[in-house]
């Protein structure tokens, strides 16, 4: 695992993992995460997301991995003192209380005793678990486990926080709380690497995302960058679509029902729609609504996992075929 100096919080190059010599879980992953951003990793089941996270956290050994985490080569153990991690389906020792869990994992992360006590109390409060801190973890609900797990990841006041499905099993209020915590952490300058299936949640908090499909990065970038091509304005008017629409480039119309139609103007620039609106008014058309539209993360995700040639959605799981070519929607 070679290192190279980097300004990124996470800078991965050529990360490769092959299980049992034939299952290509990760194929030469290139991924960069900027300091102080929330980065979302998404992909279908078996795409290699957890393997990638586990390689970063030294739980899985890669076949090849170049790059850095917080400026140190991947696998550098001491750097992990500056990283907080919440694994998916984590199992906390059931014989410990919430506070003991926090203190135990913090001690393993070299957090001094006095700091552990103080910080565990603060985090229990932040996570809304202060009444449960002295109760055994075995009595916790799944949502509570998740909150304690997240608190555990923050005990060492990490610069980088890696969270694998942090809102799994958490109720809507809890999700909002966790979201708020993540945004607060970003305000504090922390880098957050988020692996989640909940696209709507990622969309709400992530600055940048990467989509992993069959062990390859299909696409990565800011949501704006990734959806720029799909950004458009939609004007809904009463009646049928004017005939001149189809003759102009960048414009198209769709009939919604007998009384309404939609005029679509491609692009994020609001200038071209002014002309269209003027024209429609001149024709005394009733304008029902005008709104800017862009692709959702779900649309982007579906596009990334769909083969453009066949229109088929990628089969889940890593492929044993080592010659798979990327079909991504790279931005």
């Amino acid at each position: 695992m070679k290192s190279q100096s980097s300004d990124y919080a996470i800078d991965l190059h050529d990360v490769r993992k092959i299980y049992r010599g034939k299952i290509h879980a990760l194929r030469d992953i290139q991924m960069q995460v900027h300091p102080g951003e929330i980065f979302g990793l998404l992909g279908p089941n078996g795409a290699g997301k957890s393997t990638l996270v586990k390689i970063m956290m030294t739980v899985v050994r890669p076949n090849r991995a170049h790059g850095t985490i917080l400026g140190k080569s991947i696998g550098h153990k001491r750097t992990l003192a500056r990283v907080g991690y919440l694994p998916e389906h984590h199992r906390l020792p059931s014989y410990l209380t919430g506070q003991q869990v926090l203190e135990f994992y913090a001690a393993l992360a070299h957090v001094p005793g006095g700091v552990r006590k103080k910080r565990s109390r603060e985090l229990l409060k932040t996570m809304g678990m202060d009444d449960w801190g002295n109760k055994k973890v075995s009595s916790y609900s799944k949502g509570m486990m998740q909150r304690i797990g997240l608190a555990q990841a923050l005990m060492n006041d990490p610069d980088l926080i890696v969270l694998d499905e942090p809102t799994d099993g958490v109720d809507p209020v809890g999700r909002r709380d966790i979201r708020d915590v993540l945004l607060e952490l970003r305000e504090m300058g922390k880098t957050i690497f988020l692996n989640s299936h909940l696209l709507s949640e990622l969309e709400m908090v992530c600055d940048r995302v990467a989509i992993l499909v069959q062990g390859e990065v299909a696409t990565q970038g800011t949501l704006d960058d990734l959806t720029r091509e799909s950004q458009r304005y939609e004007i809904i008017i009463a009646g049928t679509a004017p005939s001149w629409i189809e003759t102009k480039s960048g414009l198209r119309a769709e009939t919604l029902d007998d009384d309404r139609c939609k005029v679509i103007i491609m692009g994020a620039d609001p200038q071209p729609i002014q002309t269209v609106l003027d024209q429609l008014r001149q024709e005394n058309r009733i304008i029902l609504s005008v709104q800017p539209v862009r692709e959702t993360l779900e649309d982007l995700f579906m596009r990334a996992i769909t083969d453009p040639a066949t229109g088929e959605i990628s089969s889940p799981g890593a492929s044993p075929n080592s010659n798979r070519k990327s079909k991504g929607v790279r931005a």
Partner: peptide, 11 residues
């Protein structure tokens, strides 16, 4: 699973 991840992710 789940338990070892937490331990190995520590320094």
């Amino acid at each position: 699973g789940g338990s070892i991840d937490l331990l190995l992710s520590k320094p």
